[in-house]
């Protein structure tokens, strides 16, 4: 029980951010994380603690993709409406900039650049976005990412490469501007 609480406490913020980047909605992201937590605890609470992270991420991914499918259907049915999820979209430019540098190797990359990257990630197609977040932020291997997303290794490599390419182009643009 304590282990599960610790695990959820450790992962909940990142899970929320991943869902928020995917849905662009705070409320929907909270709902998705809550559902994922509930499913993990009720269905897989008895499993070994080492399996919780991939299981939780898999549930989260499925919830995010379900949400996207529903949104796509809604946007097709009600094509004249502006999507609600755009209403509370965070504005990267409004984020508070910190003035300290984070890494000697990346000293040229400012906090402002980090915010630009987040905005770029938010704009990525859902599969590329989730693949990139799982690989880069959660530190999953190619096979772990493939298992969590329910796709094959080549698709993971392809999504990750495309996401990286877009971020590289953004970085190039930002460095040219500086």
């Amino acid at each position: 029980m304590r282990n599960m609480e610790r695990f959820l406490k450790d992962i909940e913020k990142r899970a929320f951010r991943m869902a928020q980047l995917a849905t662009k909605s705070e409320a929907d992201a909270l709902d998705i994380v809550q559902e994922a937590m509930l499913k993990l605890v009720t269905k897989y609470g008895h499993t070994d603690a080492q399996e919780w992270k991939p299981l939780f991420l898999k549930i989260l991914e499925n919830r995010i993709l379900d949400w996207h499918r529903k949104e796509q259907l809604k946007s097709k049915l009600f094509f004249w409406r502006k999507p609600d999820s755009q209403m509370d979209k965070p504005v990267p430019e409004q984020a508070e900039a910190e003035d300290h540098q984070f890494d000697p190797a990346g000293q040229l990359l400012s906090e402002q650049m980090g915010q630009q990257f987040l905005a770029c990630i938010e704009a990525l197609p859902i599969k590329q976005q989730q693949c990139f977040l799982l690989r880069c932020w959660e530190g999953l291997s190619i096979s772990e990412t493939a298992s969590v997303m329910g796709i094959n290794h080549n698709s993971v490599k392809s999504h990750y490469f495309r996401a990286n390419e877009k971020l590289r182009q953004l970085q190039q643009t930002l460095e040219d501007e500086q």
Partner: peptide, 15 residues
Amino acid sequence: QAREQAIRHALNSSV
């Protein structure tokens, strides 16, 4: 590597 580190930092700062 530098880009990914910057992104990780930005993501960690955002939560």
